[in-house]
Design a protein around this nucleic acid. Structure first.
Lengths: 121, 121
DNA sequence: CTGAATCCTTTAGGATACTG
DNA sequence: CAGTATCCTAAAGGATTCAG
């Protein structure tokens, strides 16, 4: 077995597992993609731009992305409050990889759906 | 808002969400990476090559990957039974995208860990 | 050896109400 | 407007037992 797999096997040391544990949730990728297109968005704009995310989950998702240093949160001391979100450099550097995955998904989604249907899924 | 985002917003039509709903679980990526290195493996070999996966979850994971047409399952009619798994062409075509994501994770894991620590995570 | 079936715990996520 | 706090449900995943 290669050295690479020695790393993958340990959930605590494995970079991709450490990262995907966060990004593999229901909303993170979507938030990153949206911020990648729109540059800067307010909390409310983000929520409206996603069909069905709850306010709680948007908050949780943004906090996690922020703590990973992928998203930056800027608070304007105004009333009513105003908070703007944008990708950090690290977040931007992740973007092309998500896009390439997204392209693969778009290309293969029909085949995948056919496979699932055939198997009763 | 761009057309791309119109697609992302709908969880049912969005390819990347449809795909990541499956692949974003705890074990799928790891199985794909391992099969990408080892070509063909038996059920037991796969389980041993992962530190802590339960037998049930390995079965579930492999069934989902199979139903997505990413993994092929070959049964040898022997006693005791023998089942070999390998990536399909579709699975192989996904591999480089996961690797590029994995490379990004490896490069950024230290910074991410520092960010998390700083934020109390 | 490769599972399937069952039960149980943990976690993710949603709904609602409230606040500066 | 941008959250927090609380409660609740659903889904993921683990442990155990059994079977061909």
């Amino acid at each position: 077995m290669g050295k690479i797999l020695e790393i993958y096997r340990s959930s605590e040391n494995c970079p991709i597992r450490t990262v995907l544990d966060r990004i593999g949730d229901k909303w993170s990728i979507l938030v990153i993609l949206i911020l990648g297109e729109e540059e800067t968005m307010r909390f409310n704009e983000l929520q409206k731009s996603m069909n069905d995310i709850s306010q709680k989950m948007l908050t949780v998702t943004l906090r996690k992305l922020e703590s990973d240093g992928l998203v930056h949160r800027r608070i304007f001391p105004e009333i009513p409050p105003r908070v703007e979100y944008n990708l950090t450099e690290r977040g931007i550097s992740l973007l092309p990889h998500i896009h390439s995955l997204s392209d693969w998904a778009t290309k293969n989604i029909d085949g995948i759906r056919r496979s699932r249907a055939k198997s009763g899924n």
